[in-house]
Design a protein around this nucleic acid. Structure first.
Lengths: 233, 233
DNA sequence: TCGCAATCCTTACGAATTGTTACATGGGGC
DNA sequence: GCCCCATGTAACAATTCGTAAGGATTGCGA
């Protein structure tokens, strides 16, 4: 499955254009239809990964179409509708839709929801699993750290918890108390020493100079701060 | 999967009660938590099918929690939030959430969206009997494993249970407690040693190098993780 | 019912990882 | 400069995990 294919079915030209542009920009292939008959004919030739269907179609009952799609097609189905009542949403979802977006909508949210559907459908590798920072990359699915020189350093679960905490809020102070809370340690006890050791081990794996750490900086009496630009993917 | 288990994490008693009643009435099992630490502790023992998470938690950054769940748990994640901005929804979904519901909400819609998530989850590997991964294939109808070189290796029922668990949630951390629960073992007992043995046998059948397993990786103190892309048929 | 075989659990011991202790280092107030 | 306390880290202890070997259980056929 190279680039996912998104099918759009809507009778309003404006919305077709808006969605088409947003999805193309997001890197999807698109197939755009204004009438249900064309749409169904196309489905027999190629199977899209996600179908965006407007319920307010002039030439066919939208809900019936959704139901048929849900039964026969393997695609994820996202309803787009002007009908905002809870009952409408419930019946749409019960009939087999995977999501229900209300007009007017923001294209960015549509893209995000499509991505969410594709994630689940493709394989179970959910969310962003790797973080990149300063020529390093941390792969949380494999528990491996890739150094700038290409070397791979495995890290343990304990180290990973600390690392993830840092990478989730870089350039922000993380107090020791916050860490203990997040790492499930009972406060007060001598667990704080264990945390120091975790950080120490993490630092050696990150090739930090103990005298002058560049990534994990200690703020005396307050906590730690992770410098470095982080991007998740 | 008998009756699905829904975990709820919210700090407002009112909402906890409302959701709890609605989900119980809809026929789900529920596990309700008011604080993130309790919630995380429970996750180590048992794996819910869907997690409803409120972002406005007092004791933890909700988005970080969602991200962690997306990385480590196989459950579908539905965010419930009072923050209604499009940007909030997009970041929530990008971090790995499967859906985003805005307060105030109607319990009926929550139930409908949960059902939509469960539907998709079940489709993946529901009636399928064969799983393919990394040039291997596991035939659960015949209790046979086909190696990349064509050799056929039979596996027992006990081994199959473990293998199925892995193949149903690949690239996800599976804690030992969750395994025991899934495999019907009594907790705390010396049954955990039996699990090790099962996995050990499975590893030898999968031709794993004991020093450097490529498929079934041990996360010391946390559980196991199955690497490798899986597709069911 | 008995015996046989296959499977599975339990035990035991070695190996790997993590928490703990102890001591060294360095920062900050006086 | 001196003292106190927070932090770094090496060395040790405790815990967790891998797996070989032996015993218990189950299922099957006679």
């Amino acid at each position: 499955m190279s680039t996912p294919m998104i099918a759009i079915l809507d009778d309003e030209p404006q919305i077709r254009r808006m969605l088409g542009e947003a999805l193309a920009e997001a890197g999807f292939r698109t197939a755009i239809f204004s009438r249900a008959t064309e749409f169904e004919a196309a489905l027999k030739r190629t199977a899209p990964d996600v179908c965006l269907v407007d319920l307010g179609l002039p030439d066919r009952d939208g809900l019936a179409l959704v139901h048929r799609l849900a039964l026969e097609s393997g695609a994820a189905i996202i309803i787009i509708s002007g009908r905002a009542q809870v009952q409408d949403r419930v019946t749409g979802l019960e009939l087999g839709a995977d999501d229900y977006i209300i007009k007017p909508f923001d294209p960015a949210e549509v893209v995000a929801r499509i991505r969410a559907r594709l994630r689940k459908g493709r394989d179970a590798g959910g969310g962003a699993t790797t973080a990149r920072f300063e020529n390093w990359s941390a792969h949380f699915d494999r528990y491996v750290l890739a150094a700038p020189d290409g070397r791979e350093v495995p890290f343990s679960h304990a180290e990973g918890e600390v690392l993830r905490l840092f990478l989730q809020s870089p350039k922000r102070l993380i107090s020791r108390a916050q860490m203990q809370e997040s790492l499930g340690g009972a406060a007060g006890d001598s667990f704080d020493r264990a945390m120091d050791v975790r950080i120490s081990r993490l630092r050696t794996k990150l090739d930090e100079d103990p005298r002058n750490p560049r990534l994990i900086k200690t703020i005396y009496g307050a906590g730690y701060i992770f410098l470095g630009d982080v991007s998740w993917s």
